[in-house]
Write a protein that binds this DNA or RNA. Structure first.
Length: 327
DNA sequence: ATGCATGAGAC
DNA sequence: TCTCATGCATA
């Protein structure tokens, strides 16, 4: 009873909107599709872009989120406040400063017509089940089978205790560590914690996934997210320890077996991923047309490519507190 | 632990 | 359309 991934992945959320409107960074410093417009571009340019970026990547590996961990290698972006603009130029045009010209060329490539073929969703046929983020309490969704309740009545959980303390990255890091240790001591898995949160019945707090708990512990969530989750997890921890102490009732988990619907995860092959990374190095925020173009080139669904870019950007913004704090 | 995905809400 | 918070699926 200590392994996860085997059962009841609840999917309710907690809507702790901690920093729901951090809407930041949005001005690109890159200009696409400027100037050029005849789309007679050849693949050679793309190939070169990839090659260049690839070389660049391998050289200054720290700049990119190469693999698993390289992600947070660089400094965090918006630690200080809830809305400092990250969007730092990630690309590492080292020796060669061809990015701009390449961009022009690249953008010209599809300059005109986009087949917008894959307008349907992604390659995943599995219908998108209801993934509800936050719904009003009385809301009842259409999925009778794997129904999962425990909504969050509130859309915004203003972390009442917003003392400078809570925002302190070092404090968060310390807490995350403490949390993990004590959680393990309690013999509770990350998934269990996520499920148990709903049992706390705190206003606006539903369950969370193993992923999120894991990310909290490893500090791989955004700063705001960490801050929003902290008080909740802290509440759970105290509650759990108290319960364990009293040894009166340690079971209050509602395990809800999940039914059929399985989502198939798209797997982008290494070569394609490599290309995407190359493109990303050149332009982390390609336009819709750009995306369509790239998708076509790599023979991927446009949506897959779009999402990939979104996720890459998100990764870059992710915070690794230990980097800024732990010293 | 992490890759790809969804969806609400902000632009 | 993008960002953000989160999740399912999987390595």
């Amino acid at each position: 009873m200590s392994s996860y991934g085997l059962y009841h992945p609840h999917q309710t959320l907690t809507s702790l909107g901690g920093g729901r409107d951090i809407s930041n960074a949005d001005h690109d410093q890159y200009l696409w599709g400027k100037g050029n417009f005849f789309g007679g571009l050849d693949d050679g340019l793309l190939a070169r872009a990839e090659a260049l970026a690839a070389v660049d990547i391998s050289k200054s590996s720290t700049q990119h989120m190469m693999k698993h961990d390289g992600l947070y290698g660089h400094t965090a972006t918006d630690l200080g406040g809830n809305n400092s603009r990250p969007h730092m130029p990630i690309h590492s045009h080292g020796p060669f400063g061809p990015t701009d010209s390449m961009l022009d060329q690249l953008s010209a490539n599809t300059g005109m017509q986009l087949p917008m073929m894959g307008e349907h969703h992604n390659n995943v046929p599995t219908s998108h089940h209801n993934h509800h983020q936050m719904y009003p309490p009385m809301y009842s969704h259409p999925n009778p089978m794997n129904n999962h309740h425990s909504f969050s009545p509130h859309h915004q959980i203003v972390h009442h205790s917003m003392h400078d303390n809570d925002c302190d990255p070092r404090e968060l890091e310390a807490f995350a560590e403490r949390f993990k240790q004590r959680r393990i001591k309690l013999g509770v898995t990350q998934a269990d914690v996520g499920t148990a949160l709903a049992n706390l019945k705190l206003p606006g707090v539903g369950s969370l996934s193993q992923s999120t708990i894991c990310r909290f512990e490893s500090l791989t969530l955004s700063h705001n997210n960490m801050i929003a989750l902290k008080p909740i997890l802290q509440a759970w921890l105290e509650d759990a320890e108290k319960a364990a102490r009293e040894k009166k009732e340690a079971e209050q988990n509602g395990l809800i077996p999940l039914s059929d619907k399985k989502r198939k995860r798209t797997s982008i092959a290494a070569p394609e991923k490599r290309s995407l990374e190359a493109y990303f190095a050149v332009q982390p925020r390609p336009s819709g047309e750009k995306i369509a173009q790239i998708a076509e080139k790599l023979d991927l669904k446009k949506n897959v490519v779009r999402v990939w870019f979104c996720n890459q950007r998100q990764k870059q913004k992710r915070l690794k507190f230990s980097a800024v704090t732990a010293h």
